[in-house]
């Protein structure tokens, strides 16, 4: 990251080679449009370069850092566009999806991605559908609780409860799986 902070293009290329696919996939999931996802990815990498000197391992892994920049920038953009995707959109996106392949990224990165993906999918699979839906609309579509309440025509209190339960269950499941793994 020091090399990136100093502006070496090879460092940027390396960062791209390693993590472009999870960053792009996440950006696409959030923006729902390939062009916008590609634009977002570029902005994320440029922001990462500008903030590279602030990144420390202590604050989490590099990929998590990039993904959290992606999330913040996507939410900003969604709010700026006042774009409120309908519920159907998330389901439509599955048509674009292909399975995880190992080519193009190093095996280390691939292993990390696979491991985390299994961890989070197991946790999400354990959620009842209404809780999972609220979690996805909030995190991936950037909807506030109030907006979710309107979209699903469900009382705000119910949405709050579902979101709270969903996150607590996720957290417990992740902690439990991590314990089992050790």
């Amino acid at each position: 990251m020091q090399s990136l902070a100093e502006g070496h293009p090879e460092a940027m290329d390396l960062l791209y080679d390693r993590y472009h696919r999870p960053v792009f996939s996440f950006a696409l999931r959030m923006m729902g449009d390939r062009d916008q996802a590609e634009e977002l990815l570029q902005e994320v990498y440029l922001r990462a370069w500008r903030r590279a000197s602030r990144f420390t391992d202590a604050r989490g892994s590099l990929i998590s850092w990039l993904l959290s920049i992606t999330h913040n920038m996507a939410i900003d953009e969604i709010r700026k566009q006042q774009r409120r995707p309908q519920k159907q959109q998330a389901e439509d996106q599955t048509e674009l999806m292909i399975s995880l392949r190992a080519d193009g990224i190093s095996m280390d990165t691939h292993a990390i991605l696979t491991e985390r993906r299994e961890l989070v999918r197991k946790a999400m699979d354990q959620l009842p559908q209404p809780q999972r839906e609220v979690l996805e609309l909030a995190y991936f579509n950037g909807l506030t609780q109030r907006e979710i309440s309107e979209l699903l025509d469900t009382p705000l209190g119910t949405i709050k409860t579902r979101m709270r339960l969903a996150l607590r269950k996720m957290q417990e499941s992740v902690e439990l799986q991590s314990l089992e793994a050790t």
């Binding site: 696919r21 996939s25 292909i98 999918r121």
Partner: peptide, 8 residues
Amino acid sequence: PFAVNQIE
């Protein structure tokens, strides 16, 4: 974010 299917 890791739950998302990977797309090139």
